[in-house]
Amino acid sequence: MTPEPRLVHIVDDVPELDETSDLTMVAVLDGFLDAGNAAAIASRFLVQLTEGREGKGAGPVVATFDVDQFHDYRARRPAMSFVRDHYEAYDAPRLVVRLLHDSGGTPYLLLQGPEPDNRWEAFARAVRAVVERFGVTRVVSMGSVPMAVPHTRPVAITHHASRPELLTGESPWRGELRIPSSAQSLLEVRLGEWDHDALGFVAHIPHYLAQMDYPRAALALLENVERAGRLTLDLSDVRSEADEREDEIARYLSANEEVAEVVDALERQYDSFELAEESGNSLLAADEPLPTGEEIGQQFEQFLAGLEGPDDQPGAP
């Protein structure tokens, strides 16, 4: 397939990929499906894993999309530095495909950058050109959404795929849901229509942690990507980061009774749902009242400030 002019530039000569018969491309588009920055943390880890293994910078770029064709600069203004009397250090948005390697040296691709604000169909066709040029076997996407779930329970994952045979787990949903679309979800639909395998994972992030880094969800996403993408990933660093954040949250809850009560209510609701599922009843069978997003937000306003902002008290997170 020949890509539309100027939408994507694909490197002509990548000998390492010419010899690869099984190639995964991981897709992470910033801007929509990323509560708790889970997908961003996961993609950053993948780049760092290659950097640490090869002892040099991020993996080489093998395809570059023309961001000007897709980005709304007035809606998402890139940062720029003003130094005394002049502008410099413009952080231009980049939408690229990098060649990375897993812990065992197996090559794979990472599609990373801001979600296109427009021309989604053209973007999907440009990605198709990359997939067909390098013979990508499967495209695996990552995302995360805020949900009324407690952080004290396992991170739930929504599995999705362009065909049932690709699913690696059962979906927690029943029936049809009408949800806002994204360039990433449309890409999966179009790739499936073009007979290219595409699947992905969406982590469920507790409402009250959606605005802060939540590496535990990133870990859950990476574990699923590792299996689905047939990769080998040393996840010890992100696991340590997740444990540290969980300890911070636990210390805060032990000192804040009102916040702990909100989490306790979510735990009861979650456990009721699980029990209903195991017994074959409706997920709506539980009668435990669920805190609203506003109630959770009010209770955790100080929580977020305590974790992300300065605090003079010894031992505070």
Rank of each mutant, 00 (worst) to 15 (best):
F45H: 13
G113C: 13
A260W: 02
A40S: 12
D287S: 13
V62T: 12
D68V: 10
P180G: 14
E19L: 13
P215Q: 04
D247G: 13
V8K: 00
W194P: 05
E294H: 08
G280C: 03
Y214W: 09
V61H: 10
V28K: 00
A260F: 00
E16R: 09
Q69T: 06
A89W: 08
R245Y: 04
R77K: 02
G52V: 06
F134E: 15
F65N: 04
Y252E: 09
R44W: 05
R125W: 10
H204E: 07
S279F: 12
H196L: 09
D91S: 09
P215M: 05
G105Y: 01
D68G: 13
D213E: 13
H9Q: 03
G36P: 02
N256D: 13
A161V: 10
G306M: 01
R53T: 14
E223Q: 15
R94K: 10
Y270M: 05
L111I: 01
L222T: 07
A255E: 12
E274K: 01
L284F: 08
A35G: 07
D243M: 14
A255V: 06
A265M: 04
R268W: 11
R74T: 09
G297K: 03
S279K: 15
S185A: 12
L187D: 03
F32I: 07
V11T: 14
I10K: 01
V189L: 04
V263Y: 01
I157N: 00
F300L: 11
P310S: 11
P310F: 10
V97F: 10
A250K: 13
V61D: 04
V97K: 02
L219K: 03
Q184P: 03
L46V: 09
D68L: 07
G175E: 08
A35D: 04
R227F: 07
H151V: 13
G293V: 08
P78E: 10
A276P: 08
V155D: 02
A129I: 06
G36T: 11
T106H: 10
P93H: 05
E4P: 08
G143Q: 04
A228H: 03
A255H: 10
V155P: 01
G192M: 14
G200T: 12
W120L: 09
G280Q: 00
I41T: 10
F134P: 02
A203L: 08
T20Y: 00
Q211Y: 07
Q269D: 07
A220W: 00
P154G: 12
A126E: 05
N281L: 11
G293L: 06
E294P: 03
E19C: 06
D237W: 03
D18A: 12
D85N: 14
L23S: 06
D264M: 07
F45G: 02
H9I: 11
Q211T: 11
E258Y: 03
G31D: 04
E267C: 07
I157M: 04
R128A: 08
Y87Q: 14
